[in-house]
Amino acid sequence: MTTVAYFSFSWDDTRLSWTSKPAYSSDIERIYSTESVLFTPSLVVENSINDLGVISDKTLPMRIDQSGQVTWSPGNIYETSCDIDTTLYPFDKQTCSITLTTRGYIKAEVELKLAKMPIVLTAYQENGEWEYISSSSDVSVTARDLLLYSTLTFTFTFQRRSSYHLISTIIPMFLLAFMSCYVFKLPVDAGEKLGYCLTVLLAFAVYLTLVSDNIPTTSTTISYLSVYLLLMLGMGVISVLLTIHIIDINFTSEEEEISGCMRKITKIISKLVCWKGCGTCCKGRNSSVSVINVKRINVHLGSKKVEGNMDDDVEDEDFSWQEIARILDIFMFRVYLFLVIMLSVAFIGFMSWGSLW
C-alpha cells in the first residue's frame, strides 16, 4: 500500500516553556525551530518496504508553544507491505496497515499514545481502483532484543471497485463458457467444427493470462476466478480432443465393422438423448408405430407371425458411423451445458457467500 500522508506528533518539553517569564509570555505565543536543535523522538515505519530509516525532515519547522508543547508534522510517501487475500478477486476486500514504532527508546523512555482523532481523512482523495471502507488504530507493544518498544498501528480496509472487471472479464468469461458448449451443435460436414473449438480455447487462454497478470503474485491464496477459468480451459481442451474423435468417427468407412463395445455404448447414449424416439420420453409414440408395422407384415406375409415389442426393436437397431457421431454430439452438448451451468452457479455462489462474510 502506497500512502501519501503525514504524522502529527506532539509532546511536552518543560525546558522550552517561558510561561514563568511575564516579559515574554504575553507577547510571544509560540516560536518555531527545526529538529537540528531540538529533541525529536526516534520513530520508524516498521512495515515499510523501501525505507527503514528514522522519520526525519530537517527543513520542516517545529512549533513550540508557551507551555513547552512541541508539535511536529513530518510527511512522506509511505510504502508498506500488506497480506493480500485474492480468494474473491475481483470482489475482494483488503486490509492494510501502517505500523509506527520507536527505535532506540524503549517503552519506559518514549511511550506512544493516540490522539482523540487518530486518523483524519479530511484530505483523503478517492482512488480509482479501491473504495475506502473503514479504518482503525491500536496501541501495542513490540518486543525486540528482549526489550519492549511502544507501537501504534493504523489499519485501513478497502474494497476493490469491481465494475471494470465485471464488464471486461466476468461477463465475457461467462459468454465464452457457453460458447464452448455449442461446438457440439455444429455439423461435422460444416468443416468449421475443429476451428471453432480451437478459437474458444484460445480465447480462454488469453483471459486466463489477463487475469493472472492483474492478480497480485504475492497472495497466499488462490482466486476462485482463476480456478473457474482453469476448469473452463480444461473443458475446452477436452472438447478439442472429443471433436477430433467425433470427426474421425463420422468419416470412418462404412466397410469397417462397428465393435460390440461401441454398439452397446451407442445404444445406451441413444436412449439418454432420445435418438429417433429411442428413449423412454417417446415410448408411447413408438409403441403405436410398432403395432402398425406388425399389421403391415401380417397383410403381406399372411402366415408369418411377428413377435416382439418396441424395446426389442430398439435393442436390435443398428447404427451407422455418421449416426454414432451425431449421437455423441448431442450427448456431449447436454453434458457440457450442464457442467457449464453448474460450475457458473457454483462460482457465483462462492463469490456471493464470500462477499457477505
Rank of each mutant, 00 (worst) to 15 (best):
S73A: 07
T87R: 03
D83F: 06
T101I: 10
K93A: 05
W130V: 07
E111Q: 05
L112P: 01
M117Y: 13
I77Y: 06
S135R: 00
I77H: 08
E111A: 13
Y124W: 11
S137T: 08
Q94I: 03
C96Q: 03
A123F: 10
Y78K: 09
S81F: 09
D138A: 09
P118G: 03
T87L: 00
S140W: 02
C82P: 05
E126T: 11
T122R: 07
S134R: 14
Y132A: 01
L100F: 00
K93D: 02
D85V: 04
N76C: 12
T101C: 10
G104S: 05
L114D: 07
D138H: 08
E111W: 04
F91W: 08
D83Q: 00
I119F: 02
D92S: 10
K93P: 00
E126L: 13
V141N: 02
L100R: 03
D138E: 15
S140L: 06
S97E: 09
T99P: 02
N76F: 09
E111R: 00
I98A: 00
T101G: 07
I98C: 02
I106W: 06
Y124G: 05
S134E: 14
V141D: 00
K107T: 09
T122K: 10
K107H: 03
A108E: 15
I119G: 01
P118W: 03
T122G: 11
E79C: 09
P118A: 09
T95N: 04
T86K: 04
I119M: 07
G75L: 03
A115S: 13
Y89D: 03
T80A: 10
A108Q: 12
T86S: 11
T95R: 10
F91C: 06
K93F: 09
G75I: 11
G128W: 10
T87H: 06
G75H: 07
K116E: 15
W130K: 05
T80D: 01
G128Y: 11
Y105K: 14
N76R: 14
V141S: 01
I133T: 12
E126P: 02
L100G: 03
G128V: 13
G104P: 00
Y124D: 09
